Amino acid sequence: MPFKIPESVLVVIHTPALDVLLIERVEPPGFWQSVTGAKDHADEPWTVTAWREVAEETGIRAGSLADWELENVYEIYPRWAHRYAPGVTHNRERVFGLTVPAGTPVQLNPREHRAWRWLPWQQAADACFSPSNAEAILQLPRRLPRRQP
């Protein structure tokens, strides 16, 4: 199996009311997160990676995807370092938001995730194991277009 590319997406899926979809990893259990995933090849556009990962992990194929033009660089967790080429220690993560209607059906990939839940954005941020994921969720209210009265 080829090594993972150390460039990935984080997609915060949410409703207009700011309920956020979290999915629980199969391994290790208890790790709740938004959709994440690496590029398939180095020149794959960020939006293509984002849509592919959303479809693969949740079955969702529609909604309003927004590139937040925010990138995080973080150290790869030791438990997953073997997936990357020798010497690769950090990953670059591009953040997106995906607005979907309330009640959007979710169909998990059982090889990757075991459960899903919708939570109000503050509770979703508290439930994430990843600091960059929690921070992205906390930014959600500021990332939405302003509503006209």
Rank of each mutant, 00 (worst) to 15 (best):
M1Y: 02
P2G: 01
K4D: 06
E7G: 02
E7D: 13
S8F: 00
S8E: 11
L10G: 10
V12N: 00
I13W: 01
H14V: 04
H14K: 06
T15S: 13
T15Y: 08
T15G: 05
A17N: 07
L18A: 07
V20L: 01
V20K: 01
L22A: 08
V26H: 06
E27D: 13
P28K: 10
G30I: 09
Q33Y: 04
T36P: 00
A42K: 14
D43H: 08
E44F: 11
P45Y: 04
A50N: 08
W51C: 06
R52A: 12
E53T: 10
A55P: 06
T58A: 09
T58H: 08
S64H: 15
S64M: 08
A66Q: 11
D67Q: 02
W68R: 15
E69N: 13
L70N: 01
L70R: 05
E71W: 01
E71G: 04
N72Q: 12
N72D: 06
N72S: 07
N72H: 11
E75P: 00
Y77H: 13
P78N: 09
P78E: 14
A81F: 12
H82P: 00
R83A: 10
P86E: 15
G87L: 05
H90R: 12
N91M: 09
N91H: 01
N91V: 09
V95P: 00
V95H: 02
F96R: 00
L98T: 01
T99E: 15
V106C: 12
V106A: 11
L108G: 10
P110E: 12
R111M: 13
E112W: 11
H113F: 15
H113I: 07
H113V: 08
R114K: 14
A115W: 00
R117I: 03
P120Q: 05
Q123K: 07
A125P: 07
A127F: 03
F129G: 15
P131M: 02
N133K: 13
A134D: 02
A134H: 04
E135S: 09
A136H: 03
I137L: 04
I137E: 00
P141E: 06
R142V: 01
R143H: 09
P145H: 10
P145C: 08
P145N: 09
P145Y: 08
R146E: 15
